[in-house]
Computed example of a mutant assay.
Amino acid sequence: MTISMDAAAELYRQAMREGVRRFSLLYLAQAGLLVLAGFLSIISPIFSAEAVIGAIGWLLVASGLLQGIGLIPARHTPYVWLQLISAVLALLIGFLILRNPGQSLLAFGLLIVVFFMIEGLSKVVWALTIRPILGWLWVLLSGVLGVVLSIILIISLETTAPWLIAIFVGLQLIAIGAAIGYLAWSIRQVAAQSKPIG
C-alpha cells in the first residue's frame, strides 16, 4: 500500500508531536539549561582571553551532553539524527577547544564558525521537516541565527576578539534553548487542551 507525500508528511509530524509531547519535561529542562549556559557564555568575557576560550569549550561540551541526554528517550522519533548532529558537533568542538585552550584566536574562531554553520543548518532542516508544528518557526529562526553568526565571524575572523565570540556563542545557545523550550511548551499546551474531560 502506497501513501501520498502529504499523508507521509502528516504521519511524520504526528510522530514528532507525540515524541516531543511524551518527553516535553525533558525538552523543557534541556532548554532551560541551554539558556543558562548561554548566559554564562555571555558573562564569561570578564575573564582573560584564555579563560574565555576554556569556558566556551566547557559550555559546548555541557550543551552537547544536555542535548544528547535529551535525545535518549526520544531516540525512536523520526529525524532524531538532525538533533543528534547538534549534540555530537557541540561535544566535538568543545573537546577540540579544551584540548588546546591556548590555541590561536584564528583556530578557535574557525572551530566556532564550523559549530555555528552546521548547528544552524541542522536546525533549519529540522524546522522545515516539522513544519507546521507550533513552534517550528522559532527553531527555524535559531538555525538562521547560527548561519548569520557564522557568516559574520567568517567576514571578521582576523579582527574578532574572544569576548565577542563568547557573546555570539551565548546568543546561539540561548536561541536554541528558547526554541526547543517554546516547541515543547506549545506541544504540551495543545496536548493538555485536547485531552477529554472526565
Rank of each mutant, 00 (worst) to 15 (best):
T2C: 04
I165N: 00
A31T: 05
A161W: 10
I85Y: 12
L25K: 13
Y12K: 15
A8D: 09
I93C: 02
A87L: 08
I180H: 15
E50H: 01
S41P: 02
Q30H: 08
V88M: 14
A55F: 06
G120C: 02
S86C: 12
D6G: 01
V52Y: 02
A55Q: 11
Q189C: 04
I43P: 01
A31D: 00
A8M: 12
G32A: 14
F47V: 08
A37R: 00
G146E: 04
L110A: 11
S186F: 07
A31V: 02
I167A: 14
F116M: 09
Q172R: 07
I167D: 10
S104T: 13
I165V: 15
V169W: 07
P78V: 02
L105W: 00
A107L: 10
A175L: 04
L141R: 07
L183D: 06
S48K: 05
A191D: 15
V88T: 13
A29D: 11
L66H: 07
A55R: 09
L134A: 13
G109V: 03
A51M: 11
A9E: 14
L140G: 09
V114T: 08
I53F: 08
E50D: 06
A29Q: 10
K123W: 12
Q30K: 09
L164Q: 08
L106I: 13
I85T: 15
I43Y: 12
G198H: 10
G120D: 07
L171W: 07
A178T: 13
P196T: 09
G70F: 08
A87H: 09
A191F: 08
V144F: 04
G19M: 00
L60D: 00
S142V: 01
I180Q: 15
I97G: 04
I133S: 09
L89G: 07
G146V: 04
R17D: 07
A62E: 01
W58M: 13
S48Y: 00
A8F: 09
N100P: 03
N100R: 15
W81N: 13
A90L: 07
A15P: 00
V114H: 00
L183Q: 09
I180G: 15
A127F: 01
I69S: 05
G198S: 10
L89C: 07
A9F: 10
Q83N: 14
I72N: 02
F168E: 12
D6P: 00
G143R: 05
G143V: 05
S142K: 02
V20A: 04
Q189A: 11
A51P: 00
S63C: 06
I72T: 06
I42L: 09
L33E: 13
L171G: 06
Q30S: 14
I118Y: 03
K195W: 04
A179P: 05
S186D: 10
A15Y: 00
R131F: 13
I130H: 01
I187H: 03
W163L: 08
I197R: 13
Q103G: 08
M1F: 05
M16K: 08
A175N: 04
T129G: 03
T77R: 12
A37T: 02
M16W: 11
F116S: 00
W81T: 14
L98R: 11
Y182S: 15
